[in-house]
C-alpha cells in the first residue's frame, strides 16, 4: 500500500524533544542548517553528528527511520558527489590518478565532494527529525507564529499557515484515494509496470484524472463546510493551543548555541579542510 511510505511521518512517542515548542525546534533547525554549511573540517562534522545523535536518542525516535529519510534524495546526493568530484578546482591540489578523465580527481576534490554529500545528508537527517517529532498542526502553528512580523506588511500569514495545514492534512487522504483508484484501475487490467517511461506516464492518466477531480470535489466540500461555520481567519481569532516557551526551550537553544560556537572555534583554530 502507498500509505506504507513514511517520509518523515510523525512518530508518536512522548519525549523531551516532542514536547519542545515548535518555534524552538524550527529555529534550532535553521541554526543547525546554517551550521552544517559553515563547517570547514571533519571535527565540525563530528560535533554536528554528535549533536544529531544525542537529539535522536533523547527524542526516542528509531535511528533507522531518520536514516531512511535520506533515501528520498539519495540520487541528488550521488549526483552532487560526482559533479564535485570532477569539477572542484583548488590551488595546490594533488592529482591522484594520472589517467584520462580520472585526472580531474584530486585529494582536495574528494574531500570537498565528501563534505557536500555529508552536508546534504545531515540536512535531511535534521529536517526529518523535526517532522518526526512535531505534529503537522503544531508545525504550522509554529511557522505562523514565527512569521507574525510579516503581518505588518500585510502578508496573509494566517491564510498561508491554513493552506499549509490543510495541505498536510490531506496528504494521507489523497494517498488513500490514490491507492483506491490504482486498485480500481488495476482491477480493470491497467498495467503500471511494463513499458518505457512514456508508456508508464501515459498509464498513470486513468489514475491522475479521477484523483484531480476528487481533489477539486474535496476542496469545494471543505470550503462549503468552512463557510457554513462562518470561518474567518482574520483578527481576534483565539487559539485552542497557545504556544508558550518553557524552561526546556531555553536549555535546548543554549545547547545548540554551544555546539554552534564549538563549530566556529573548530573552523578558526583547525582551519579549512584537514
Amino acid at each position: 500500500m502507498l500509505s506504507d511510505v513514511a517520509f518523515g511521518q510523525y512518530y508518536p512517542v512522548s519525549s523531551p524533544v516532542h514536547r519542545l515548542d515548535p518555534r524552538t525546534k524550527i529555529v534550532i533547525l535553521i541554526a543547525y542548517i546554517v551550521m552544517i554549511f559553515l563547517i570547514k573540517n571533519f571535527v565540525g562534522f563530528v560535533l554536528a553528528g554528535a549533536f544529531l545523535l544525542a537529539t535522536i536518542i533523547i527524542a526516542k525516535v528509531p535511528i533507522g527511520s531518520v536514516i531512511k529519510s535520506v533515501k528520498a534524495i539519495l540520487f541528488i546526493i550521488i549526483i552532487t558527489f560526482i559533479i564535485n568530484l570532477f569539477l572542484h578546482k583548488e590551488e595546490g591540489a594533488k592529482v591522484l590518478f594520472d589517467v584520462w578523465l580520472l585526472n580531474k580527481i584530486t585529494d582536495k576534490s574528494i574531500k570537498y565532494a565528501l563534505f557536500m554529500a555529508l552536508r546534504l545528508s545531515f540536512l535531511v537527517f535534521g529536517s526529518s527529525l523535526l517532522t518526526l517529532t512535531t505534529t503537522p498542526v503544531s508545525l504550522t502553528d509554529g511557522i505562523e507564529s514565527l512569521l507574525t512580523p510579516l503581518k505588518w506588511i500585510r502578508f496573509p500569514v494566517h491564510e498561508l499557515a491554513l493552506i499549509m495545514s490543510i495541505a498536510l492534512r490531506f496528504i494521507p487522504t489523497l494517498m488513500e484515494e490514490t491507492d483506491r483508484i490504482i486498485s480500481a484501475q488495476k482491477a480493470r487490467g491497467a498495467d503500471f509496470e511494463t513499458g518505457n517511461f512514456l508508456k508508464k506516464a501515459k498509464a498513470l492518466l486513468p489514475v491522475l484524472i479521477p484523483l484531480v477531480i476528487s481533489a477539486f470535489r474535496r476542496a469545494e466540500e471543505l470550503g462549503d463546510a468552512m463557510d457554513a461555520r462562518c470561518y474567518n481567519g482574520s483578527k481576534n481569532r483565539t487559539k485552542y493551543k497557545k504556544l508558550t516557551f518553557k524552561f526546556r526551550d531555553f536549555i535546548s537553544v543554549f545547547i545548540t548555541a554551544a555546539v554552534f560556537t564549538a563549530v566556529i572555534f573548530a573552523n578558526i583554530y583547525l582551519g579549512g579542510i584537514v
Binding site: 483506491r180 483508484i181 486498485s183 480500481a184 484501475q185 482491477a187 480493470r188 487490467g189 491497467a190 498495467d191 492518466l205 486513468p206 489514475v207 484524472i209 479521477p210 477531480i213 476528487s214
Partner: peptide
C-alpha cells in the same frame, strides 16, 4: 469498488468502457 463512478476518467463513455477490454 465502492463508489465505482469515481474511477471514471476518459473523455467519452465509449473510451471509458473500452479501457478494460483493451487492457485484457
Amino acid at each position: 469498488f465502492q463508489y465505482p463512478e469515481q474511477q471514471l476518467f476518459a473523455e467519452t463513455v465509449f473510451e471509458d468502457v473500452a479501457f478494460g477490454y483493451k487492457n485484457f
